[in-house]
Simulated scan of single mutants.
Amino acid sequence: MKLLLNEQRAELLANGKANNTLRESGLAEQDFNPVVKLFCPWGAATWLLTELDPEDEDIAFGLCDLGMGFPELGNVSLREIESVTGPGGLRIERDMHFTANKSLEAYAKEARLHQRIVA
C-alpha cells in the first residue's frame, strides 16, 4: 500500500510551505488538521501527519506514538516508516477511512491524557 496518496502529499507539502513562510516571517504557525493517519497493524504505533518539509519531502511533521505511552509532536522520516517490516511481511499502513475532525494540537492534548493517540 502506498503510504501517501498524491493528493495527500500535495496537501502535506502545501501545509509545510505555509508554516515555513509563517516561521520565516516571525509569525505563529498554523495548527492544521491531520491529513493522514498511518498505523502499525501488528502493534500500537500510530502517526497523524499534518505537513511535509518543503526542503526535504522525506521529513513529515505530526503527532507520533510508538505505542509506549508517550505520544509527542515531532518530525519523522517517511522512508524510515516505509522501511519497517513486521511479522509475515506486514508493513505500516494508511488508514483509508480516517478523516480528521480536529486540529493536531487537539489530538495531541487528548493523546497526552490517554497516553496514546485516539483517532
Rank of each mutant, 00 (worst) to 15 (best):
M1S: 13
K2I: 07
K2S: 12
L4R: 09
L5T: 15
N6Q: 15
Q8A: 13
L13Q: 05
A14T: 09
N15I: 07
N15V: 09
G16A: 08
K17H: 08
K17L: 15
N19V: 08
N20G: 13
T21M: 07
T21C: 02
T21F: 09
L22K: 15
E24R: 13
E24T: 02
E24Q: 14
E24P: 00
S25Y: 01
S25A: 15
L27N: 13
L27V: 02
A28Q: 15
A28H: 12
E29H: 02
Q30Y: 01
Q30S: 04
Q30I: 07
Q30E: 11
Q30F: 03
D31L: 05
F32D: 04
N33L: 06
P34A: 01
P34R: 04
P34L: 03
P34V: 02
V36M: 10
V36N: 11
V36H: 09
K37I: 03
F39C: 07
F39G: 04
P41F: 01
W42E: 05
G43Y: 00
G43C: 01
G43L: 00
G43T: 00
A44N: 14
L48Q: 11
L48W: 10
L49Q: 11
L49I: 07
T50A: 14
P54F: 06
D56I: 05
D56F: 07
E57V: 15
D58K: 06
D58G: 06
D58T: 04
F61Y: 15
F61R: 14
F61N: 14
G62N: 07
L63D: 10
L63S: 06
L63M: 07
L63P: 08
D65I: 04
D65E: 05
G67Y: 02
M68E: 15
G69I: 01
G69R: 02
G69D: 06
P71M: 04
P71Q: 06
E72I: 00
E72D: 07
L73G: 03
G74D: 13
V76F: 10
V76W: 10
R79H: 12
R79Y: 08
E80C: 05
I81K: 11
E82D: 15
V84W: 07
V84F: 10
V84G: 00
T85A: 01
T85L: 03
G86E: 02
G86K: 00
P87I: 01
P87Y: 01
G88R: 01
G88H: 06
G89A: 13
L90V: 08
L90D: 09
R91M: 10
R91F: 02
E93P: 01
R94F: 10
R94V: 06
R94Y: 08
R94P: 11
D95A: 12
D95N: 14
M96F: 02
H97Y: 12
H97P: 00
H97A: 14
T99H: 11
A100G: 12
N101T: 14
N101E: 13
K102C: 08
S103F: 02
L104F: 12
L104K: 10
E105F: 12
A106Q: 15
A106V: 05
A106W: 08
A106M: 09
Y107K: 07
A108Q: 06
K109L: 10
K109D: 11
A111I: 05
A111K: 07
L113W: 03
L113M: 09
H114F: 13
Q115Y: 06
R116A: 13
I117V: 15
I117Y: 08
V118I: 13
A119T: 10
A119C: 14
